[in-house]
Design a protein around this nucleic acid. Sequence first.
DNA 1: GCAAGGTC
Length: 857
Amino acid sequence: MSQGPELIITEKDNAARRIADILSGDSATADREQGVNVYKWGGKRCIGLSGHVVAVDFPQEYSDWRDVEPVELIDAPIEKNPTKQNIVTTLKKLARRARRVIIATDYDREGELIGKEAYELVRRVNESTPIDRVRFSSITEESVTTAFENPDDLDFNLAAAGEARQVIDLVWGAALTRYLSLSAGQLGSDFISVGRVQGPTLKLIVDREREIEAFDPEDYWELFVDLTQADKPIEVSTDDTAAEFEAQYFYHADDGTEAERITEESTAKTVFETLESASIAHVDSVKRRTRTDEPPAPFNTTQFISAAGSIGYAAQRAMDIAEDLYTAGYITYPRTDNTVYPDELDPRELIEALTNGSRFGSDARDVLDQETLSPTTGDEETTDHPPIHPTDELPKPSELDDDKWEVYELIVRHFLATVSNPATWEHLRIVAIVDDTYSIKSNGRRLLNPGYHAVYPYSNATESLIPDIEDGETLRLIDSRIEAKQTQPPRRYGQSRLIETMESMGIGTKSSRHNVIQKLYNRGYIESDPPRPTQLARAVVEAAEEFAELIVSEEMTAQLETDMQAIAEGEETLESVTSASRSILTDVFKKLMNTDAEIGDHLQRSMKADKTIGPCPQCEGDLITRKSQAGSHFIGCDSYPDCEYTLPLPSTGKPHILETVCDVHNLQQIKMLAGKRSFVHGCPLCEAEAADEQADRVIGTCPECNAHADGELAIKRLRSGSRLVGCTRYPDCEYSLPLPRQGEIDVTDNICDEHALPALQILEADENTTKDKTTKESDDIWELGCPICNYREYQSDQTDSSTLESVHGIGAKTAEKLKDAGVDTVSALKSAEANTLADRVDGVSVDRLRKWQSTAD
DNA sequence: GCAAGGTC
């Protein structure tokens, strides 16, 4: 038996650090080996993986799509290859002389598989060392110590269940993806993918679009009246009653249910005439009830994404921010299904810590004043991670940018809400009769006790007040309205709703659902937000429905879950389950192979339809959006190379075809998508023609070539729609300076001393231009100044914030703070003196400095 | 270059 150290392996670095701290009593130190943290204390080492560090794949000889028939992938061998070489190498090096190995990956199925992957890597270099497995539900002192005192064995059956999923997903996904791509002649980066999770998700979106298109609206009418109490003078109002209130006409349908919609126009008019001519109504019933309104359950990933969505964050963006908040130590792990706080969480202690928060401290204190503090519970309790909640480490306001603050505050307030009292409402329902015939009703609600709403402004707590009316009272009719409406088609899924639906269907995981949606965007299957399916998406779903129904059905996951359960319980094996699945896929391919050309043609036509903007002005062909070999987008004719007609597009963003058609050229307008810098380009032919017509405006001499030639600088408009200050000798001289895309350019009499160029200003620039708001003088005029000085300033702004941010993950604000404190950022990052540095810079935690320092080498 | 699942 070797005398080497004991090696602890966790699923991620963050967990490794916290476990090392707990087991060592904070005495562990971190060494960096090949960019991997190894925590060390006594005779122990602790290393964090990065999820799966190996991946299943086909052998090299199967990698050429043209040489291998997709059907051959079904029975091809599968191998596991390292994907994080540095971690694998470091792990093996440590394992070689380890006296004992303890696997401490997450306590869930995927964690068991990741643990088994580590197990196999260890065994490759060390055949005999004992390997144990520990399981704990939260990384707290008590749970971790108890787990390490009671080591167990790896559950190989559970890991095999995970492996079955890997194999089935790879085989089905790769074989069908290659088949569809090849049949449509798509060999480049625009391949056509399908998979067990993306398939049904895409079908959800396509099915909804089909419902919307098939929807046949029906007319209906609704009637409303405005009322006051007859025995009170008009306009008397106390604090919680309104003098005037609204009621709606209703009747009882044949089945006895209450209905408001009238489907016959003549009936609606008859009722309306009566309401209009009536002057009073008699109160028939008054019902009062008190309702409690329970605070929300703790946040799991889906509910967090949904709440963030309601304050304007797309799913991916919300998760990116949550990831940042988690690595900075401000919130717990953001990928969780759990909606029950663990016993180890002491709400009182955490709320007390939150009382120090600048934006929510007083709300936290109010919650502490409650008589009881019992958190709500959701209906899912898992063993891997707690629900998302803030930690007791609070960020200083300057440490987070506005978006991060907003999301952080949402998480804090949601936590406070889950430990707050319920709200109570008084509901008041009044029914009155008009002309002894027609019923009208009014529903009011009044907040008796705001409860959790006091700390959670994201929930709806709108009151709708109606007067305190009594049974038998007479009401005065002031006004009546008839509203003609139409039934509406079902709404498209928003990203949050899509993720919620995926969860309820059991497809995808807490960590993967938002990525799947992103993938559908990247594959050209959906566009805009809320997502709409492209023609290609419809064609893929149609093809799958006909020949490979399982790959767009949630049944595939349901069956797989059943099979995995059986493997985990030892009733089935990895081998039996995967071979049954392979045989089903073989049958699918038998059907597919009989239909070759059909599917490919359909996919091709749909792909072309997604790119077409209208007729080519020079031939019978269609203009489509295309991409040059260099990667830039342009408009070209689909008859190329017979027709070489092209139009340029702006260089920023990806083109998106709008439904609006230019009535001069019959071409659809184009929007360039570039996140927050997206803008509408319009009809590309109109843009090109406008540029052709506009003469260059000379403003000075060219600094690059004027010494040896006679180049002049001019304001130019390009056919792509962009504008610049450039040399008149272009293309012989390529000197140019950028100008904003929109707003009228005004040349002033102010000449720059250094460059002898006039200052420019932009008039009537609208909100969508790319200008930097801080340089804006007023709402209407943007003083650009000398174009050379302006460009120089713009460039230095770019490098200041972006290099530090991209290289070291330091935000622009923090970089500035470091500079203000007299710390040279680069050398600070290389220095090991985190504590001393943190003292000098207010608001930068030692943890974060350590993190940055680890990126500096 | 394919999937889905981890994580950064």
